[in-house]
């Protein structure tokens, strides 16, 4: 068991990291910490992908022409380029999602002055109750 873990230490690290990230994303009440959790989770996936695409002793997949229509090194000598492409796409996605989440967090902070999602909810329900009470008062005044 331990041998297998040591053999796949990149994957094991990736699994632990993604667990940490997911737990943070789900359980943290502070929004900034939530977003950090999201980024840890995404990074763990990139580590996993990079570890999967790497082949011991091979070079980066850049083809160099030999000037006579062929290539200097055969494709057998390169690491798998597909996971690198996936990681790149994943990074773009995670950056845009992070930016969007931060923008929304900023808006929430402007409205409630807190980064805690539960506190924001409490303040919101309070405000709603006050609003309803005011509407009721106004209606009673009209009736009387």
């Amino acid at each position: 068991m331990l041998e297998k873990l040591l053999l796949n230490h990149y994957e094991a690290a990736a699994v632990i990291l993604s667990g940490i990230g997911l737990t943070n994303l789900l359980l943290q009440r502070n929004l900034i910490k939530k977003i950090i959790g999201l980024n840890i989770m995404d990074t763990a996936v990139y580590l996993f992908l990079a570890a999967k695409g790497y082949v011991e002793g091979r070079a980066a997949p850049i083809l160099i022409s030999d000037g006579a229509g062929g290539w200097l090194r055969s494709s057998e000598l390169y690491v798998n380029p597909v996971p690198a492409g996936l990681v790149l796409t994943g990074i773009v996605v995670s950056v845009s999602v992070t930016a969007f989440a931060l923008a929304l967090t900023l808006k929430l902070y402007e409205s409630y002055g807190t980064l805690n999602i539960d506190e924001a909810l409490m303040k919101m329900t309070e405000e709603q109750h006050q609003l309803e009470a005011r509407i009721d008062e106004a209606e009673e005044e009209v009736l009387s």
């Binding site: 989440a101 929304l104 999602i117």
Partner: peptide, 13 residues
């Protein structure tokens, strides 16, 4: 509105 910002954040998470 603050309500939609909160709903959107929850949905996003």
């Amino acid at each position: 509105g603050p309500e939609t910002a909160r709903a959107a954040l929850r949905y996003l998470v």
